[in-house]
């Protein structure tokens, strides 16, 4: 399996799409930083810092908030995962290598692990760029509570892993970039959340202020609940939700690959 990971990483390094998406991720970080700087500096005196919770100077924790506010980085990651995952199937390279292991699921797992290394690298690039720009351009940048930062960062990373597993699952199931991208983009662009909100309304009507809503158990709904101010109960719920999605999506992908023929 290590051989396959090594092969996948080499392929990732040589693929033009990897570098294009890495540049896009950096561009997104620059754009997000610019927006955040406007919130913090509030040059027009509109009280933006107060509205957006950016008052009181900039610290490491707020660098995460900058990304949590939008899903643009998640969109880049979904495109990366789909393109990277589907490349072998698309060109037929998987036929060259799939017979070399008895357990085909190992190839699926190694591909996802390799994709996760790419996701981690792109994520690190984007967060690194954002943090670097904050250190250079923010007037009052401080490290802040690094323990809380580390905790939140881990949760965000878990969500990226879970989202990647879901995008990976769609691409493996549909065996095409389009089949992987369409549901992935429906999730990351928030289209699916419109449907879950509708389900929430229905649940509220039926059960009158239920403790949990359907959207709480959708991945993008749980992701939306991640914030520096979230309660321990909420954090536990979103972590469990992300972990379940991660395990189920990855498990199903491996099961499918093991069972089905390569056409």
């Amino acid at each position: 399996m290590l051989n396959l990971i090594q092969m996948n990483l080499y392929r990732m390094k040589k693929a033009v799409s990897t570098w294009v998406l890495a540049i896009v991720a950096v561009a997104i970080a620059v754009l997000d930083f610019s927006i955040m700087k406007i919130y913090v500096d509030d040059p027009f005196g509109w009280g933006l810092a107060e509205i957006t919770g950016m008052e009181g100077g900039m610290d490491m924790m707020k660098t995460i908030t900058g990304f949590l506010r939008g899903t643009d980085l998640l969109i880049v990651l979904s495109i990366f995962v789909v393109i990277f995952t589907n490349a072998e199937q698309k060109c037929g390279f998987d036929k060259n290598i799939i017979g070399i292991t008895k357990h085909k699921w190992k190839q699926t797992l190694s591909r996802w692990l390799s994709a996760m290394i790419g996701v981690t690298a792109i994520m690190a690039l984007a967060y690194g760029t954002f943090t670097g720009l904050s250190v250079i351009f923010m007037n009052s940048f401080s490290a802040g509570d690094m323990v809380a930062y580390g905790k939140l960062m881990l949760i965000v990373y878990l969500f990226y892993a879970a989202f990647s597993a879901v995008f990976f699952f769609f691409t493996t199931a549909f065996k095409s970039s389009a089949g992987g991208l369409v549901p992935s983009l429906l999730i990351t662009t928030g289209v699916l959340s419109l449907i879950t909100k509708l389900l929430d309304l229905g649940a509220e009507r039926l059960f009158h202020n239920p403790k949990y809503l359907p959207s709480d158990f959708f991945l993008e709904g749980a992701y939306a609940a991640v914030s520096p101010d979230a309660s321990n109960g909420t954090i536990l719920r979103v972590v469990v939700t992300a972990a379940v999605y991660l395990v189920v999506a990855l498990g199903l992908s491996m099961f499918m690959q093991q069972k089905r023929d390569v056409r």
């Binding site: 051989n3 090594q6 080499y10 040589k14 033009v16 060109c91 036929k95």
Partner: peptide
Amino acid sequence: IGVLIESPGLFYTMSAINNMKIQALSL
């Protein structure tokens, strides 16, 4: 067992040697 089923599975945007290298690394 070396395999060439239907058309060769090649990464078209990569060079010939890089395709070879990818195959070699997988083994």
